[in-house]
Amino acid sequence: MTATSTTPLFSFGIVADPQYADIPARPEMNRFYAESTKKLAAAIDAFNQEDLAFVVTLGDLIDRGWQSFDAILGCYDHLRHRSILLPGNHDFAVEPEHLPKVHDRLGMPARWHDFSLGEFRFIVLDGNDVSTFAPPTGDPRRELATARLEALREAGDLNAQDWNGSFSNEQLSWLRATLAKADAMQEQVVLFCHYPLYPANAHNMWDAPEVLKLLAAHHSVRAWFCGHNHDGNYGVIGNTHFVNVKGMVDTPDQNAFVVADVYPDRIALRGFGRELNRVLMF
């Protein structure tokens, strides 16, 4: 074996759906909201023992209430690595006047953005862009979301749920251009979004078929990491892996998080708690 096959180029941590709120648990739904600060703190302690390039949290930091951000974001003060946050549907379960401030509260440089590490490009997306809950009141994206959801319901689609979302044309155009640039530069692309695309599931983005078609048209795409479906999921299409990380909020005391070791030809996932080990070959 060569040194590159046994030593990762770099590693990163992954968390999905802490969904914190200081409210009573709902065991019938596997929701233990108030325990998430303890579990996230334990995950951060584990991450701090690793040499990581960053830690990404795949949305739903809170379950509801603007004030809930204070406690859960406070956990990241102890993280010694770069933190990358993106919003889930529950992160917009706040008072209407706070809706325009969610991305800033998460410290995002833009609603969608990308960055590179060596020959890998990471793309951070916002699947709440066109939804019935995230755009501020009066924003035309709300009307567009209502039309999209109604069309899916008329078609009887499994993911015709009001707690899912979709991309705007603006975000899709940016994604298309970013993937084309990555192709041209011979980069390997990893995407982060709150919502799944594949396999078929009630939690998938409304525009999953269109996004899958876009990804398939670009040879640089290696993996899509998401949350939202707390049970977790996995599928592969061609050379692209779709990894749905399990929800941290789902148990009273058992954790769920991942460390991803990145190699030139694969990403090896080390699962903690309820999460599984998995190797994503390119």
Rank of each mutant, 00 (worst) to 15 (best):
N164W: 00
L106Q: 02
K38S: 14
H203K: 08
H218R: 03
D139H: 13
F47E: 01
R222Y: 00
I44N: 05
N233V: 03
H228K: 12
T37Y: 00
A260F: 07
D129H: 10
G156I: 10
A42L: 11
N164M: 07
D70N: 11
E143G: 09
V258N: 15
I123A: 04
G232W: 03
A217P: 03
D114F: 11
D51I: 07
R142E: 05
F282G: 15
F282N: 14
D183C: 06
T57W: 09
M108F: 10
D265R: 12
D114E: 15
N244F: 09
F167A: 07
L9N: 08
A53D: 02
D261A: 09
Q254D: 10
T4F: 15
R111I: 15
P109F: 02
N89P: 05
F242H: 09
A217H: 03
Y195I: 02
A16K: 07
D60N: 13
H219V: 12
D250W: 04
R222K: 15
Y33R: 06
R111W: 11
L99N: 12
L73G: 00
G107S: 08
T137N: 08
N128Y: 05
A43R: 01
R142I: 12
D63N: 13
H194V: 01
A177V: 03
D22A: 08
I72M: 00
E50C: 07
R111F: 10
H241I: 07
D114T: 14
L280T: 07
L144C: 05
E170F: 05
G88K: 06
S173T: 14
A256Q: 02
P18V: 01
A134W: 03
R266D: 08
E97V: 13
A42C: 09
I267W: 08
G65S: 13
C75T: 00
P136A: 13
E154V: 15
C226F: 01
F257L: 09
R176E: 15
A182L: 03
M248Q: 09
V124R: 01
V94M: 03
A147L: 10
V189G: 06
A21P: 00
H81S: 05
R274Q: 07
F47P: 01
E95C: 11
P27G: 00
W224I: 04
T4W: 14
D129A: 10
